[in-house]
Design a protein around this nucleic acid. Sequence first.
DNA 1: GTTGGCATCCAAACCGCTTTGAATGATCGG
DNA 2: CCGATCATTCAAAGCGGTTTGGATGCCAAC
Lengths: 347, 347
Amino acid sequence: MNLKQLAEELGLSPTTVSRALNGYPEVSEATRLRVAEAARHYNYRPNTQAKRLATGRAMAIGHIIPLSTRHEIVNPVFADFIAGAGEVYARAGYDMVLTIVPDSDEERAYREVRSKGNVDGIIVHGPKVHDARLPLLEELGLPFVVHGRSLGADPGYSWVDVNNTRAFERATSFLLDLGHRRIALVNGIETMDFAARRRHGFERALAARGLAADPALMVAGEMTEAQGHDVMRDMLTLPDPPTAVLTASFLSAIGVRRALWERGLRMGRDVSIVTHDDELGYLRNGTDEPIFTATRSSVREAGRRCAAMLLRRIESGAGAPETDLMEATLVVGASTGPAPRRPETID
Amino acid sequence: MNLKQLAEELGLSPTTVSRALNGYPEVSEATRLRVAEAARHYNYRPNTQAKRLATGRAMAIGHIIPLSTRHEIVNPVFADFIAGAGEVYARAGYDMVLTIVPDSDEERAYREVRSKGNVDGIIVHGPKVHDARLPLLEELGLPFVVHGRSLGADPGYSWVDVNNTRAFERATSFLLDLGHRRIALVNGIETMDFAARRRHGFERALAARGLAADPALMVAGEMTEAQGHDVMRDMLTLPDPPTAVLTASFLSAIGVRRALWERGLRMGRDVSIVTHDDELGYLRNGTDEPIFTATRSSVREAGRRCAAMLLRRIESGAGAPETDLMEATLVVGASTGPAPRRPETID
DNA sequence: GTTGGCATCCAAACCGCTTTGAATGATCGG
DNA sequence: CCGATCATTCAAAGCGGTTTGGATGCCAAC
């Protein structure tokens, strides 16, 4: 059933039916009701493609997911982010269009999306430091919102981000307050903006106490369980091993925990762990008391906010860039405790 | 730049340009080259909406992601599946359209997708036992492929699935061969088809040795780290605790491992663990030697196969349903060993 | 020298909707 | 009672492609 048929059925012109259904004022209340009734009865739904062509609005948002060609790993955060954003789109009547792109030809993908005109805007995932995509998108003139930021990029873009620097600065201070001095950082790949900022926060907190970060205690890599484990296993063989670890991901923290257990060390007593917790649906940090002390920030909520911001920009026609800096909360769990007194330091 | 402008620029009719670009034979090789050259030069890309309207093909595949309203949890497997499917779509020039739907009004979502006509086919995620969506989709006449199967549904549909029954049957036999008799099953929610089948495989293997499953050792629930932990913690307080555990997810296995460690038990010596491993990018089962003995099957590969199957069906006009049963491999890792001899059983 | 076939190209219709511009009849103020 | 105003409706022209049904010109065949 299409518009013309429905109009025919009603003895009206397509014009009137269209207007009645889209809430235009120049239609009598009586016919509007009649039309609505008929539409329901025939289960009429306007053809999306036709509507899009006619209005010039795709009513869809694109998410371009970079897929590292080397690592072949999808960001575990992605599913929750999508769930949050999807909620918002669904309510607003937008579709969500995903494109998985090997990071080798991301530029082509963006250009194509632009000229194909099948989305009204884009969410940029996983921004890197000095991310080349932002100037490109600016040039393309496609509305976009970045999930995260890009150090060194021209700041004239809209974004939603967690205050990663502050979060890791606080987490580090927290460990310092507990007496820890040998603190390790198990970070994500530091070409990623979020990881660079976390490291920065880590170093800043140390510097504030006149301490320098020990390069031997700072590692960056793919944030997996295996990474956490291998890194911690190696660090524990150092002559002066860390008494605390700060990890950028829940999975890394789990790996660190495994390495501790293997060595017969108790988490929170022998070695403390603080992790970042994205509050992923399938990776909850304990049910009541948190398993890990963590800097907590919901990725799902970030997804909602990104989506809402983008829709706002699209519907109001851009304007000055919007930004939204979410503060992470520091929740204390069972994985941290005072720094163990080393035998030789007993005063 | 649109078709008409490009045609103008070339001094040709839109008809000819369209044909040249789409490889129709009634165009001289000379003009075809000229058109291709100009298209490249002006970076022309046909407008998606217009093309869709004209051809009646959406060139897009829908993924309807059910979101349990109670659990608010996105299946962790989802990101990898999407990555696999996305690869295939990208190569074939299809878009991937995601819809996140609270499972309360899934039916409405399917009907809407159908009548809006913005996808050519659908991938069904997370089928349940007796899943009501399958007859609905059949009725709607929209091509679809199910990732998984549905026990009790009319079998006239296309699917890609892992042989869950067989995988868990083998895993259970493996544990039985090692001498284990008290084997626990930490399963997913058993209204989900895959979980029902895994349980079935588990029970079948026990039955084959004349053993009955102990209800106290079978738990079903959300497959999270916390679930694994809590369930195992409780089981360890039983008068006759399990010596081996079979878990339906890597995350549950990690939780089980935590519970063991908390009790000072060694994995693979005091208690064995076998888990199912979906080979998720961010949840690798160890780098060289597997951490856990596991039934392994790549979800990403399943994504690729589902996508390819659906495209095949769309482009060849349905036909008899296709099915693809993937066998999981049983990989032996460090988490299993012979059943410990109980003190009183020393002969 | 026609005629038929073939290779090329084009005008126009169409896909299903929105939207502009105009028509119609009813209502109202003077 | 008449012109102006208003409410309501419609025909037709897009949106940007594809596709149908000719045109045109050229060449081989008769």
